[in-house]
Amino acid sequence: MTYLVVLDDAGAAGLTFGELAAAVAEQWAVAKPVVDLGALDRSRVLEWEARTAEGGVVEVAVNKELTCFFLDGTPEGSAEVMVWVRGLVDDAVGLTVCDDGYSFDFALDPGMSPLQVAHEL
């Protein structure tokens, strides 16, 4: 299943590409910048596979503006990555989770556990 984590106000998040890349490398040690940043159809600048506590893999990508994280994985594994993303962003910045069909959405609040997030999915 594909999920999106959308930052309500990316400018307030204070997250830079370099900081995100360093955080990904520290957590998972495997991330690759997307090479063709100039292509009009290429909106993602960083992609990686996140190994989860359950032993699964969540494929993660981030758009150029660092305003949307795309996650493809199980609800439990994706929830783990979503909580990690929440920890990167200032608590004052709202994050919204939805699926790729926009059939649901909810606020990803500071302090939510992966179990709580998975229950919402």
Score class of each variant (00 low, 15 high):
Leu4Thr: 01
Val6Glu: 07
Val6Lys: 08
Val6Ile: 01
Leu7Ala: 12
Asp8Ala: 11
Asp8Ile: 03
Asp9Thr: 15
Asp9Tyr: 15
Asp9Ser: 12
Ala10Glu: 14
Gly11Arg: 13
Gly11His: 03
Gly11Ser: 05
Ala13Asp: 00
Ala13His: 02
Gly14Met: 05
Gly14Glu: 03
Leu15Tyr: 01
Leu15Asn: 05
Thr16Met: 02
Phe17Cys: 01
Gly18Ile: 00
Gly18Glu: 15
Glu19Pro: 04
Ala21Tyr: 11
Ala22Asp: 07
Ala22Asn: 12
Ala23Gln: 13
Ala25Leu: 15
Ala25Asp: 14
Ala25Ser: 14
Ala25Glu: 13
Glu26Ala: 08
Gln27Met: 11
Gln27Leu: 03
Gln27Trp: 09
Ala29Met: 02
Val30Leu: 00
Val30Pro: 00
Val30Asp: 08
Ala31Met: 10
Ala31Phe: 12
Ala31Tyr: 13
Lys32Val: 02
Lys32Pro: 01
Pro33Ile: 06
Val34Phe: 00
Val35Cys: 09
Leu37Gln: 02
Leu37Gly: 00
Leu37Tyr: 04
Gly38Tyr: 14
Leu40Asp: 06
Asp41Ser: 00
Asp41Tyr: 06
Arg42Ile: 11
Arg42Asn: 03
Arg44Phe: 01
Val45Cys: 08
Val45Gln: 09
Val45Phe: 07
Trp48Tyr: 04
Trp48Ile: 03
Glu49Gly: 04
Glu49Gln: 12
Glu49Val: 06
Glu49Ala: 08
Ala50Tyr: 00
Ala53Cys: 09
Ala53Asn: 06
Gly55Asn: 10
Gly55Trp: 13
Gly56Phe: 00
Gly56Met: 04
Val58Gln: 06
Asn63Arg: 09
Lys64Gln: 06
Lys64Glu: 11
Glu65Lys: 08
Leu66Lys: 12
Thr67Ile: 02
Phe69Ala: 10
Phe69Ile: 08
Leu71Ala: 09
Leu71Tyr: 11
Gly73Asn: 00
Gly73Cys: 10
Gly77Leu: 05
Ser78Lys: 10
Ala79Cys: 02
Ala79Glu: 04
Val81Thr: 00
Met82Arg: 13
Met82Val: 05
Met82Gly: 07
Val83Ile: 08
Val83Leu: 13
Trp84Phe: 12
Arg86Ala: 05
Arg86Thr: 14
Gly87Trp: 15
Leu88Gly: 13
Leu88Asp: 15
Val89Asn: 01
Asp90Gly: 05
Asp91Lys: 12
Ala92Phe: 14
Val93Leu: 06
Gly94Arg: 10
Gly94Leu: 15
Leu95Lys: 07
Leu95Gln: 10
Thr96Asp: 15
Thr96Ser: 15
Thr96Val: 08
Val97Gln: 14
Val97Arg: 14
Cys98Met: 15
Asp99Asn: 07
Asp99Arg: 08
Tyr102Ala: 13
Tyr102Gly: 09
Ser103Gln: 09
Ser103Val: 04
Phe104Leu: 12
Phe104Pro: 06
Asp105Thr: 12
Ala107Thr: 01
Ala107Phe: 15
Asp109Phe: 04
Asp109Met: 03
Asp109Tyr: 01
Asp109Asn: 02
Pro110Thr: 15
Pro110Asp: 11
Met112Asp: 09
Met112Thr: 03
Ser113Gln: 08
Ser113Tyr: 14
Pro114Val: 12
Leu115Ala: 11
Leu115Ser: 09
Leu115Phe: 05
Val117Phe: 08
Val117Asp: 12
